[in-house]
Design a protein around this nucleic acid. Structure first.
Lengths: 193, 193
DNA sequence: ATAAACACTTGACAAATGACAAGAAATTAT
DNA sequence: ATAATTTCTTGTCATTTGTCAAGTGTTTAT
């Protein structure tokens, strides 16, 4: 299994000498999961960091009424982590589930720690990954507070058109913070124009 | 000016030997701002990291209609950072404003970088700060998507009762993602019970 | 091949929230 | 001390979104 995609991902955020990238990704192992499989369940501690090389995933929580609320959608290539669970060794509140067949790279916390403390470039990379993730989440937060559902749908359609080919509208609706009925009506309205 | 509060904050998240904490905070300088002053304006690059020792702040953005949307509320003691602007040297999209008289500690990116690469304990501390901030933001995201305004208000009242003594309801409403009229009605309804 | 489960749409109605305007109360500036 | 500004409340009405239930078409499991 070639590590090209994984290695390129490291290069894409931050210029890192190829030798160092190979040192970082040396401990990563690959595996695959089929559609609708749970990668990380709630109430479990995440012991690995995951890189999604191919496929689509989501994370979701169950609210008081046991309804699923999609918290994030992941399209490869990207890292998939429950930061709190992985770094603080706490039980995850969210469930991470594949939405298509997926292939991954994983490595352990020990390896991440070794890289974090020994490889300056990896430290910078990790921090950048945090900054970018935080910023994306913050943007979504602003959007959900200040835009109505139709605008949020249109933004998503523009920013991640590919997910509509692979993920059900029910899940996309829950990601947008609306019901599937409402999303259906929004799409109907927009199709009239 | 005593660095006790600042030093204790470092100790509170992660056990760090006192000598090392003093090494970390050695480069921090203090300053004060009066109420309703802008600490960091939009379209500017954040060159400092800030620790709010005393007082209350908020960050907000201006939406298309030039309305203020409060993105975060800060109550001392805590770090106040625009991560993307500070670490990626990009213009900030948000405005950071004091809501009461505030006192701060600040240090430069160069100092943060030196600590990040030279002091393992600081690296761990920084990462933990990111993890905690991300997790809080994620929780708020889940809340705003799955709870109605009244529940969000009650949660805020429970989790941060102190802010209601220092921050106007208009700003709190905008933080909750509702109008001040709606917040006023929610409070009226609740007071009846 | 058939049944079961799921995805999507739609209708009728209810609930939540916003928009706008006006007024009272509190705070701030001069 | 007075005026100006801001904060908070409240009324009326419109808009957005949710709830529940039903129906159709598609996918999945056996």
């Amino acid at each position: 299994m070639s590590k090209t995609i994984l290695n390129n991902y490291f290069q894409s955020l931050f210029p890192i000498p190829e030798k160092i990238v190979e040192e970082i990704t040396g401990t990563f192992c690959d595996f695959s999961l089929s559609k609708n499989t749970i990668l990380l369940n709630k109430d479990t501690i995440s012991t690995k960091t995951y890189f999604l090389e191919k496929g689509y995933m989501r994370s979701y929580i169950l609210n008081q009424d046991n309804e699923e609320v999609t918290t994030n959608i992941y399209s490869a290539p990207c890292f998939v982590n429950d930061f709190l669970s992985f770094f603080k060794k706490q039980p995850s509140k969210e469930i991470y589930q594949t939405l298509t067949d997926c292939s991954f790279w994983e490595t352990s916390l020990d390896n991440v720690q070794a890289n974090f403390h020994n490889i300056p470039e990896f430290r910078e990379f990790s921090r950048l990954l945090f900054v970018i993730n935080y910023y994306k989440l913050n943007d979504r937060m602003i959007e959900v507070k200040s835009e109505k559902a139709e605008t949020r749908y249109l933004n998503l359609l523009k920013q991640q058109p590919n997910i509509f080919q692979h993920i059900s509208l029910k899940i996309i609706a829950s990601y947008l913070g609306i019901t599937d009925s409402t999303l259906s009506r929004i799409r109907k309205e927009l199709s009239k124009i």
